[in-house]
């Protein structure tokens, strides 16, 4: 494709990224660096502030929570803190999967792929996309949650009981390295599309059209990085290497989820998450 076509593709994917995902990296970095001019996020750093943070969110999101309670996926006040937190993460993750699906459907050619292959690409790609995007909300000390309203410290997450304390550390380690690449939202849009269009996912029926689509997006990404980061040598190659790290993180994450499903008798795993992690790795 000509450069102009590749730039048009980059613009299209950036536009649909902005439509699909409510909290951009630009907004998140502004919140994290205190440059929004808004009120700073509420900080959760111990069990007391966790309870206060939950009340804050409850006050702001009553209609949503009531809906979730009807569905049986909201936390119960008497549940253990770790379980309440995990259930909240799940509710957000399920919503995030819907956002990623909408973004995937906006990738030119995606909806024309074999429907089974669309399912496979999402099943395998969605956690890699979510973890890449989550890095935008993190710094070395903690992570924004609840659409940027709350900052939860890394130390607090490490203080949770096993195995919950083990869930986030690998994501923090990844985020510190990934954020060093200094991608912006327009770069991220292309990178996420590349992840989704991975032709080596197990069980794909018709690989060729997926690889062709990915090839075009890869060319658009390479051009984008050259134009947007002219000083950053080998950024394209460095970014592609991150895809290997992502696969390992997701494999470990999914194994942990599968373990939680077996060992945490009080834990309720959302049917969508069950669908995704079943027979995944």
């Amino acid at each position: 494709p000509e450069s102009a076509d590749l730039r048009a593709l980059a613009k299209h994917l950036y536009d649909s990224y902005l439509k699909s995902f409510p909290l951009t990296k630009a907004k998140a970095r502004a919140i994290l660096s205190g440059k929004t001019g808004d009120i700073a996020p509420f900080v959760i750093h111990d069990m007391k502030s966790l309870t206060a943070g939950e009340q804050l969110i409850h006050c702001k999101q009553v209609p949503l929570l009531e809906h979730r309670q009807e569905q049986g996926f909201s936390h119960e006040p008497n549940d253990e803190a770790e379980l309440r937190f995990f259930q909240r993460c799940q509710v957000r993750s399920v919503e995030a999967v819907r956002e990623v699906t909408e973004f995937a459907k906006s990738i030119p050619g995606f909806v024309n792929l074999d429907l089974n292959d669309q399912v496979t690409l999402l099943k395998y790609g969605v956690h890699e996309v979510l973890i890449s995007m989550w890095a935008s909300l993190m710094n070395k000390d903690g992570t924004l949650i609840s659409y940027g309203q709350i900052f939860m410290t890394r130390e607090f997450l490490k203080s949770l009981r096993k195995p919950f304390c083990e869930m986030m550390e690998p994501k923090f380690d990844f985020s510190v390295k990934f954020n060093a690449l200094e991608l912006d939202d327009s770069d991220m849009a292309l990178f996420l599309a590349v992840i989704i269009l991975s032709g080596d996912r197990p069980g794909l029926v018709n690989v060729k059209p997926i690889e062709d689509l990915q090839d075009t997006v890869l060319q658009a990404l390479e051009l984008q990085l050259k134009l947007n980061h002219p000083e950053s040598l080998q950024l394209f190659a460095k970014l592609l290497q991150k895809m290997t790290d992502l696969r390992q993180i997701v494999t470990d994450h999914v194994r942990l989820m599968q373990l939680l499903k077996k060992t945490e008798v009080d834990m309720c795993l959302h049917p969508l998450m069950q669908e995704i992690i079943k027979d995944l790795y």
Binding site: Q71, V94, V119, L272, E275
Partner: peptide, 21 residues
């Protein structure tokens, strides 16, 4: 595959909320 992934399939087809499907 679509049978085993009804919610993902529905999201792909019509974009319903995951809790509605």
């Amino acid at each position: 595959l679509q049978e085993k992934h009804k919610i993902l399939h529905k999201l792909l087809q019509n974009g319903n909320s995951p809790d509605e499907v």
